[in-house]
């Protein structure tokens, strides 16, 4: 019993740790950790909350989320919003942007968790591809654009982020290839 409670509180605890000012400062001082650590963590927290949501809640949400379309639409809107350089800048300099970020990203994680399994397999494939293409396109843009996109971050930060996005995209492509070519799974899901 004790263990079960612990598991459910884990995401909330993680959320609080991320929200602690020193932690928040630390992760947001560079574009790389902001985009590749803090934001994904917030989404994963949401995903875990979604997993532990009580069954009655899920049953209540389900009619509003047929085939996972509503949830996916919400996910895409939130994700697109936080990919805008303006939003990231806002989160660093304005407190209300920051609050918005700490709420919407976990919500996105929850929506993703509830909707992904309901989604048609072809739609899932299209979204995964689009996600991959986004990694590559953004990575390329960050590498080649002559200007800084975020007023709060250095150009060199942007370049490193670009390289990491390209690396991440390539790793994603390779793992996907291995799985469908030979049925090998690198991460057991």
């Amino acid at each position: 019993m004790l263990l079960k409670i612990k598991q459910e509180w884990l995401p909330l605890a993680a959320w609080f740790i991320l929200a602690l000012p020193p932690m928040q400062r630390f992760l947001e001082q560079s574009m790389v950790t902001h985009m590749l650590v803090q934001i994904p963590m917030l989404i994963i927290i949401g995903w875990m909350i979604g997993k532990t949501l009580p069954a009655e809640w899920k049953a209540k949400i389900a009619p509003w989320n047929r085939w996972g379309i509503t949830g996916m639409a919400l996910t895409i809107v939130i994700m697109a919003y936080w990919m805008l350089p303006r939003s990231l800048d806002g989160a660093v300099s304005e407190w209300y942007f920051e609050v918005l970020k700490f709420i919407t990203l976990p919500v996105m994680g929850i929506a993703l968790n509830l909707s992904w399994p309901l989604l048609n397999s072809i739609a899932r494939g299209v979204l995964m591809l689009e996600f991959w293409a986004t990694l590559m396109r953004l990575g390329w843009l960050y590498l080649d654009l002559p200007d800084r996109l975020c007023a709060n971050y250095l150009l060199s930060d942007q370049r490193i982020l670009g390289q990491l996005l390209l690396l991440g995209g390539s790793a994603y492509a390779i793992s996907w290839t291995l799985r469908i070519m030979f049925g090998t799974k690198i991460i057991k899901a």
Binding site: I122, G125, V126, G183
Partner: peptide
């Protein structure tokens, strides 16, 4: 291109269902 990708996803799904792996 997107249309073709959708079609290939279906073909890929079908081949994986029938043969387990592309290999």
């Amino acid at each position: 291109g997107t249309g073709f990708l959708i079609l290939y996803l279906d073909i890929g799904r079908a081949i994986l269902a029938g043969y387990g792996s592309l290999a």
